[in-house]
Computed example of a mutant assay.
Amino acid sequence: MKITSFLFAFAAAALPALGADLEPTLGNKGKLLLEETFSGPEVPKGWNANTGSLRIVEGQLHAGEKSSDKHIGAFRYRLPLQDCAVQMEFKLGTMRVINLGYDPAPGELKKKGHLFSVVVTPKSWSLIEHNDKSNPASKTKTHATAKTDFAPDTTYTLLLECKGNDVVAHVTGKESLKASAPDFGVKKPGLVFRMGGKDGEEVALDNVKVWALE
């Protein structure tokens, strides 16, 4: 076997197989709070589009932006959380950006808008802390970022974990991103997904799991 072929085979073997769960680094997986495979013919109850479109295609949730909304596509799943780990599979397709993150639960912070997100584009990914929409001087802060390609037709597994004020994001085959901020440990009302692209472009999501993180 040629050396290059051996190295490729070794690297491929070292990556988790598609469908395999990633392991958190901030704690241990506790109770499984949500598991969704999108195996039915309709979008499951609780997956609510605020803007954009949601539909089931061959056992996956396809989500996209609608230009008529004049807003990035966004949907939520309500699930009270605090210390937790969220895993999902995604295929970026031709989308320009996808986000997975949280809002602060009502009454937790004197802040309007999102809390933090992991952001994936075709050429990079980042962990960002969102600005306070009630404060004109507030700005979005990038805590960690890496330039790396996300192939449009490759399915990746993402794990976003948060415990206390610490956050770590993992993607198969990528170096993990880490961030910390005083507000990250607050209670969260559920998952926030956002996606940006042209009409007809969609990201494919599958096998969403959420655990309490102990």
Rank of each mutant, 00 (worst) to 15 (best):
T4V: 11
L7Y: 03
F10L: 15
A14G: 03
L15H: 04
L18A: 13
A20D: 15
L22Y: 01
L22M: 13
E23R: 08
G27R: 09
N28W: 02
L34S: 01
E36T: 05
E36P: 05
P41N: 08
P44D: 07
N48Q: 10
T51F: 11
L54I: 13
G59R: 06
H62N: 03
D69V: 09
I72T: 09
L81D: 00
V86K: 00
Q87Y: 00
M88D: 01
E89I: 00
G93P: 09
R96V: 10
R96A: 10
I98S: 06
I98D: 05
L100F: 09
L100M: 11
D103W: 15
P104F: 15
A105F: 14
G113A: 02
P122D: 13
K123L: 13
S124N: 14
E129G: 09
H130C: 11
N131T: 10
A137N: 13
T140D: 03
T140L: 10
K141I: 15
K141D: 10
T142G: 02
K147N: 15
F150Y: 08
E161R: 00
C162E: 11
C162M: 07
C162V: 06
L177K: 01
S180L: 05
M195R: 03
G197L: 09
G197R: 05
A204T: 02
A204D: 02
L205M: 15
N207V: 07
A212Y: 00
L213M: 05
E214P: 02
